[in-house]
Structure formats: structure tokens, C-alpha cells
Design a binder for these strands. Sequence first.
DNA 1: AATGAAAGTGAAGCACT
DNA 2: AGTGCTTCACTTTCATT
Lengths: 156, 156
Amino acid sequence: MKNSNNLIKIDGIDKKILRFLMEDARKPILEIARNIGISGAAIHQRLRKLEASGLISGSKFVINPKVLGYTTMAYIGIFLDKAMSNPRAVKELEKIPEVLECHYTTGNWSILIKVLCKDNEHLMQVLNKKIQQIEGVSRTETFISLDQQIDRQITI
Amino acid sequence: MKNSNNLIKIDGIDKKILRFLMEDARKPILEIARNIGISGAAIHQRLRKLEASGLISGSKFVINPKVLGYTTMAYIGIFLDKAMSNPRAVKELEKIPEVLECHYTTGNWSILIKVLCKDNEHLMQVLNKKIQQIEGVSRTETFISLDQQIDRQITI
DNA sequence: AATGAAAGTGAAGCACT
DNA sequence: AGTGCTTCACTTTCATT
């Protein structure tokens, strides 16, 4: 299952199974089985191995936030004071539900986050009343995403 | 189902159902039913409405790319020549499998993308041989994510 | 690794409230 | 909107190859 680099080796059948389930996590295993021409039990076995290997880290329903009024997505680059450790800042950022991603990055900023807000005013409040209030946050740079044009997982 | 702003109205039961399925898309509806104390048929009915409303935009198996050797994630800000239209650039970016997200942003750049590569050399090749080769791309700025510390969906 | 069969469980539709 | 019931399909396990 793993090669010398500790990486998973998956074959064409595994890939086909995963491609179906990455598109639709609730697709019946038997339907996939009929599609690719092996038994349901075989797929079941393979999925258990893939889960054990850590390649499959779960499944999710995907929500469309626009329908709930969340229309303003932005990336915010955050500069931290030298005294402020990254882990402490992340701990604070975790408490802010509008923060969907947080990356410890090279380059200009210490941290790059993705936030999702209802509108520009909501974004402004998150910035001023939540993010800027975090101790050690000195300055931020905001980039509003006018349109997310690609959103996908890795191709396998 | 929709209020005057054309937004979906969901109640506490909807939220509970969605929270279960956002965690695990394959969780049996009957199990959720037992958990929250209503019949499976009721949940079935609610899910159909939520799907029809567009709030649920699908379900996905989530893959852990690290296990396949993809360990280098980066954000790249792209400057486009005035002559280059955004849609044409996006069309080219779509062809690059390493590009997972693409945002049309305000601020410094025209476009902000997220890429996932196996290592720094792979990232360098994607930059030099794919992204920089796109007509109209004048300059790029790369921010490597040393660690993605938060990754989640909106809280409902 | 894959198969087919068996037992248990769930999905989906319907009539009724 | 929700319930209970029914039918059919799917999941899961196991002995076998």
C-alpha cells in the first residue's frame, strides 16, 4: 500500500472509485461497482484500505453560502508584531467564525486568512472589531474576491 | 422558504441536519433522525427542500493530498497586462490541474490563485512553465503556505 | 484481491393527519 | 410539516476462490 517514500500507491480502480465519490459522496457503492465492472464487496474493501491509509479524510456536504446571504469573500494578509507568536494568533482566529482558512505564509505577511462575510459592512466589522483587536496584530491588507472562478480539489 | 430578500430561511432542525451532514456526508438519514428525534421521512422532505433551494450544492469525499506527496501549497498573486481580459486568463488557468482556486480580486493583483504542488521544484515548474507562459501575465508574487492551520466551511 | 450470498439497515415514496 | 408503513436498494460481513 505504501512505497519506500511512505506515500500511498493507488491503482486505476482506486482512482475511478475516488473520482466518483469526490463528485458525490453519497453515490451508492453498488452503482459505482456496476459502473466500473467489479463487485460491491471489492469496492468496499478498497475503500477501507484507502481510509486506513489516510488518503480519504472524510466526506462533506457542501453548502452554498450565497443563499444564506454571505456574498463577500476576502483574503486578509496579517502582519504580526515580533512578540506575537503565530500559534497564539491562530488560536484567536479560530474563535472568529467568519475565518474559513488560515495559512502561515512566507513573504510579506505572517498570516494569510480567508474570510466570508455577508457584505462589506460585515467584513469591516470583522476587520475592525475582531481581527484588529487581536493582540499582536499590527497591520492588515485586504483583498476582496469579486468572483471565485475556480474551486476544486486535486485531480487524481 | 425564502424571505423578502430572496434568502433562504432555515430553522433549528434544518441546521441540525446540515451540521451532521457537513461533518459526514454519508451519515444515514435515519441515524440523524434518531439523533434529533423526528422521523426519517421528515428529514427526507427537508433535505429535498434544502436541495431545491440551492443551499446544498453537493457532497464531496475529501482527499488528503499530503498522502499522495502534495506538500507544497502556495498563493500566487498575478498581474495581468491591461490588454488581457480576466476571463481569458481564467480559461488558461483552468487547464492547469495544480490550480485549485482562482479569485478575481480587488487590490494589488488582478487574480489570486491557490496552487498545490508536490514540492518547491514542482511549484517552480508550474510558475515558470505554466503560469508565466500564459499570454498577458506580466508578473507574479508567490506566498508559500508553510502550514494550513484552519480549513472549514461556514458555521450554520 | 475479488466474488456471491445472506442478514441487517437504510432510502424513498405514499397515504394520512 | 410530520408520521408510519411499505418496497426496494444498498451496506456490510464472511466463506470461498
